[in-house]
Simulated assay, not measured.
Amino acid sequence: MNRHYYISDDLDELEQVEQELEASGISTEQIHVLSEKDADMDQHRLHSVSPFMKTDVVNSGRRGIYVGLVLAAAVLLVAYFSGWTQTVAGWVPFVFLALVLLGFSAWEGGFFGIQEPNGYFRRFQELLREGKHVFFVDVEPPQEPVLEQVIRHHPHLQVAGTGAAMPHWVMSGQQKLHRFRKMI
């Protein structure tokens, strides 16, 4: 999947683009609007980026897990090569300490990440502060012509580049969850 970014200062136009894309077969879960004007976003039928996804909690949490794995491995290796595991206590306290270090590192990484903007959106921070909105669409290769055709009818949208999209399995899970919510 590919992610296409566009910049606009008109939420009405973005709402129209989203409706046209959905009518052309691109699902709601593939379309997002990133904006700092939450009150204005509430006045439109747009699929906005969740506050959680505006932060870098996932990437920082992942880095915290990596640090935790290194610390946990170090504790287990030191305990083994020092002979401390041959005592009456055995491996239990060292495995517990390794798990605590892993969990703490993941939590701390996530804590740092929740205070930072998402790395994918960092390049748009200045535009967002200026009151503009970032419209992005995740598309499969066969959907590229559909996106191009709809965007062609909206010359006020400024192309802002492409990037990596969310994995297909995540998109599929979101679509199934959305359909399930509609049934309820």
Rank of each mutant, 00 (worst) to 15 (best):
S27G: 11
E29P: 08
Q30R: 15
Q30E: 05
I31Q: 05
E36Q: 13
D40L: 15
M41A: 13
Q43R: 15
H44M: 11
V49I: 09
K54T: 02
K54V: 06
N59Q: 09
S60H: 13
R63I: 04
V67E: 00
L69S: 06
L69F: 14
V70M: 06
L71I: 14
L71K: 10
A73N: 09
L77Q: 04
V78D: 02
A79H: 07
Y80R: 06
F81S: 13
S82M: 13
T85G: 07
T85M: 03
G90P: 06
G90F: 09
W91Q: 10
P93V: 04
P93L: 12
F94E: 10
L99K: 00
L101M: 14
L102I: 10
G103N: 12
A106F: 08
E108L: 15
G109I: 02
G113S: 04
E116N: 14
N118Y: 00
N118E: 01
G119I: 02
G119R: 05
Y120H: 01
F121Y: 08
F121P: 04
R122N: 06
R122P: 01
F124Q: 03
E126C: 03
E126S: 12
L127C: 03
E130M: 05
G131W: 07
K132T: 00
F135K: 06
F136D: 07
D138C: 11
E140I: 12
P141K: 06
E144T: 15
Q149D: 14
V150C: 03
I151R: 01
H153F: 10
P155W: 02
H156V: 00
Q158W: 04
V159A: 14
V159L: 11
V159W: 13
G161R: 08
T162P: 01
A164Q: 04
